[in-house]
């Protein structure tokens, strides 16, 4: 399973908590390779690891925080983003990365996601989307396509899913991309871009959960499920996120959808703070 994280590239071993391996993820799970891309992105981009803070919520992806040898916080279900908000506002020198799953970030934590995007706060959110709650055994998630089978939609999902790139870009994110787990180079590059870009960056990674979601929806098993997602994907950089809806067994539109310069929360906050200090100073002189 370590190979799924591509540890043969020596560069990322130093970022792993070796004393915590082997990890808990099932074989063929898409989460490990995403973590691998993240760590290689840090290494390639030479981002100071001492300044990175990784924050996760709850769920299979939420366990990423526990394996990376970085300052890392495994918080409560849905609350990784507000926790990360506190970190970055209290220390703007930090490079804060939220690493969590679709259920955590978009269902229970959905409100925080859109507000963080609205604020355009300096933060990178990596959302591993496997369409279901893997840790609790495969219940339907807010991104599960219509008709998808899960342990709580035994007759097919009757709810419409979120289109995450559309949601997050409409909320104000500066950077929005979607890749599948086997778009290793693109994903690595996207993470590097997101981490070095001011403002709110969001990367959705379509990743298989072969043991639950994949099995229930008759996806190919093991590594083949990763190839399946990759084969289904259509690269359309710059596509309008509104056209990036996902359907069961349908094409997966991937690419970098949004990469714009917008003033960030810090830009405004700094301005307002210096205004407050000027005022206080003027009053003190009177």
């Amino acid at each position: 399973m370590i190979d799924a994280m591509n540890v043969e590239e020596p560069s990322i071993e130093k970022y792993l908590r070796q004393d915590r391996l082997p990890h808990i993820w099932c074989s063929g799970c898409g989460i490990g390779p995403v973590a691998g891309c993240f760590l290689r992105a840090i290494d390639r981009e030479e981002i100071d690891p001492d300044r990175i803070a990784v924050v996760s919520g709850i769920g299979c992806t939420g366990r990423v925080a526990g394996y990376v040898k970085l300052d890392s916080f495994h918080t409560t279900h849905g609350r990784a983003i507000p926790f990360a908000t506190g970190l970055i506002l209290a220390n703007p020198e930090l490079n804060v990365v939220v690493f969590s799953g679709d259920g955590d970030l978009v269902a229970i934590g959905g409100n925080h996601l859109i507000h963080a995007a609205r604020r355009n706060i300096d933060m990178t959110v990596i959302c591993v989307n496997n369409f279901n709650y893997g840790m609790t055994g495969g219940q339907v998630g807010p991104t599960a396509p219509l008709e998808a089978r899960t342990t709580t939609t035994p007759y097919g999902n009757f709810e419409f899913p979120f289109n995450l790139p559309y949601l997050v870009s409409a909320s104000g994110a500066s950077y929005v991309a979607r890749w599948t787990v086997l778009h290793i180079r693109q994903l690595e590059k996207a993470i590097a871009e997101a981490m070095t870009k001011p403002g709110f960056s969001f990367i959705e990674v379509i990743a298989p959960c072969p043991v639950v979601y994949g099995r229930m929806n008759k996806e190919p098993k093991g590594l083949d499920s990763m190839y399946y997602y990759q084969e289904k994907s259509v690269i359309r950089n710059g596509a309008d996120p509104k056209d990036a809806d996902l359907e069961l067994n349908g094409p997966i539109v991937v690419g970098k959808f949004v990469d714009v310069q917008r003033p960030t929360l810090w830009d405004h906050l700094r301005e307002v703070s210096s205004r407050a200090q000027e005022k206080a100073k003027a009053r003190a002189k009177v």
Binding site: A53, F73, T75, F83, T85, G86, L87, I88, A90
Partner: peptide
């Protein structure tokens, strides 16, 4: 949560 995060910073 933001308060907890700030404290950890």
């Amino acid at each position: 949560n933001a308060v907890l995060g700030a404290s950890w910073a």
